[in-house]
Computed example of a mutant assay.
Amino acid sequence: MGIIWTIIIGFIAGVIAKFIMPGDNEPKGFILTTILGIVGAFVATYLGQAIGWYQAGQGAGLIGAVVGSIILLLIWGMVTKNRA
């Protein structure tokens, strides 16, 4: 059940992040939005553990996943902007 919950939270975080930061070059589609949210949660967990907000084995919640997803969208925007 843990992996299904992670996918659901990842999808919700990806949708919220794309709503907060809309753009023309953003990844589109259900699967990419879900992946964006899941990877955003991992980014938020890693950064939170590095800063000391989370302990080892503790993950980021929905807000952390949204923040991580927004960071990924910023990076995605910079990379695709340089390509074009």
Rank of each mutant, 00 (worst) to 15 (best):
I12T: 15
E26D: 05
K81H: 13
N25M: 12
G29K: 01
D24S: 14
I70T: 05
K81Q: 13
I16V: 15
G14C: 04
I38Y: 08
Y46C: 07
V39Q: 11
V67E: 02
K28P: 00
W5A: 01
A17T: 06
L32S: 00
Q49F: 10
M1R: 04
T34R: 02
A41Q: 09
L32D: 00
Y54D: 04
A56V: 13
L62E: 10
M78G: 02
W5Y: 10
V39T: 11
T33P: 00
A13R: 08
G52L: 10
F30C: 02
G40Q: 05
I35V: 14
I38E: 01
I7M: 01
G59F: 15
K81F: 12
I51D: 07
A60F: 10
A56E: 14
L47P: 03
W76P: 03
I71C: 14
K18N: 06
G23T: 04
L36D: 03
I20E: 13
P27K: 13
G23F: 05
L72K: 13
I3A: 00
A44K: 11
V39I: 15
V79S: 10
V15P: 03
L47M: 07
Y46M: 12
L36M: 11
A13Q: 11
W53G: 13
G10I: 07
G77T: 08
G23K: 09
V15Y: 12
G52S: 11
I8E: 03
M1E: 02
W5R: 08
K28M: 01
G52I: 04
I9T: 09
P22Y: 09
A44N: 11
A60L: 12
K81I: 02
W5I: 02
L73H: 08
I31G: 00
S69K: 02
Q49P: 08
Q58S: 09
V66I: 15
K18A: 06
G2T: 07
W53M: 11
T6W: 01
L36P: 05
I51M: 15
Y46I: 14
I35A: 09
L73M: 08
V66A: 05
W53V: 09
A41Y: 09
I35H: 07
G23S: 14
I63A: 10
I71M: 14
I31P: 00
W53Y: 14
Q49R: 15
G57W: 11
P27I: 15
I3P: 00
G10D: 05
A84C: 05
M1G: 04
G61Q: 07
F30D: 01
P22L: 09
I20W: 08
I35M: 11
G29H: 01
G61V: 06
G40C: 03
I16Q: 13
W76E: 04
T6G: 00
Y54C: 04
T45P: 03
Y46D: 05
L74D: 08
V66C: 12
I16C: 10
I4H: 00
K81R: 15
L74K: 12
L72P: 08
Q55G: 15
Q58Y: 08
A50E: 13
A13L: 05
A41T: 10
P22M: 05
T6H: 03
G29A: 03
A56G: 08
A41D: 06
K18L: 14
P27E: 10
D24F: 12
Y46Q: 07
I7L: 02
L72T: 07
F30H: 04
V67D: 01
V67H: 03
A84T: 10
D24Q: 13
